[in-house]
């Protein structure tokens, strides 16, 4: 589904990604862990098409096409979804406007019929329930004044509505209380399917207990230093990055 080869990216003059190689097959869940500032968010942002980062080398092939050539919205239409580490507040835009506009934009490009208001509301309400979010969130401005955890739930709500084929979840577990962690984790598990892949950035084992990854990678200093199965995460939790890097 996704093949990243020798990916280099920088911000201004500062190189951040220094040769990332990663293969994600359909249906797999990959977790990326790594110290603060190692480039995890940079990687997910580059995949989603944020242009603050300049790709200086390498290639990303997604479902047979060159992902890096696509505009952010084209990636969204093609099924790429990024859950932001810091979801953006958009004062003045109602959450529900964004949700409906996004859902229909994506549907249109998938050749699906537009959802009528009634159908859409029904769908949203269903997902709200899953995320245990109050309907009032729909009528508030996008992420404006949401608590940290509420923002993350809102991201997963969007994901459920957009039904991506490749979900990039950047620290979606950070800032969540115990219950929310479970809800978000289950939200992700619900999306699990043989034709959908997930790239999960996280610092903690907790989420990985709920969403069991097929592979775990350690990203440090802009490179993937180590890969393994889900036991690697447990080792990291015990030994920290220092122990791993020394080994």
């Amino acid at each position: 589904m996704l093949s990243i080869q020798n990916l280099h990216a920088r911000v201004g003059d500062k190189p951040i990604l220094k040769g990332i190689n990663l293969e994600i097959k359909t249906g797999e869940i990959h977790a990326i862990m790594g110290p603060n500032g190692s480039g995890k968010s940079t990687l997910s942002s580059v995949l989603a098409g944020r242009d603050d980062y300049e790709v200086t080398d390498g290639e990303v092939i997604y479902q047979g096409q060159n992902l890096l050539e696509l505009e952010p919205e084209e990636r969204a239409w093609a099924g790429v979804f990024l859950s932001f580490q810091y979801p953006v507040e958009i004062p003045g835009v109602k959450n529900i406007y964004l949700l409906k506009a996004a859902v229909n934009a994506v549907r249109e490009h998938r050749g699906q019929p537009e959802l009528k208001a009634g159908e859409f509301l029904k769908l949203v309400r269903e997902k709200l329930k899953v995320m245990q979010m109050d309907e009032a969130f729909l009528h508030r401005n996008v992420n404006e004044g949401f608590s940290g955890g509420e923002k993350k739930r809102n991201e997963i709500l969007q994901m459920q509505l957009l039904e991506p084929t490749l979900a990039l979840l950047d620290e979606t577990d950070s800032g969540l209380d115990v219950d929310a962690l479970r809800i978000v984790g289950e939200g992700i598990n619900r999306m699990r399917s043989p034709d959908r892949s997930v790239l999960l950035v996280t610092h903690y084992q907790r989420l990985l207990d709920v969403v069991k990854p097929d592979f775990v990678h350690v990203l440090a200093q802009g490179e993937i230093k180590l890969s393994g199965d889900h036991t690697l995460a447990q080792r990291l939790e015990r030994e920290g990055y220092e122990g791993i890097e020394a080994a």
């Binding site: 989603a48 953006v88 958009i90």
Partner: peptide
């Protein structure tokens, strides 16, 4: 720009 990116990453033209 960040807000624009956010909206576009959700599929808006």
């Amino acid at each position: 720009q960040t807000e624009l990116f956010y909206l576009k990453s959700r599929g808006l033209s």
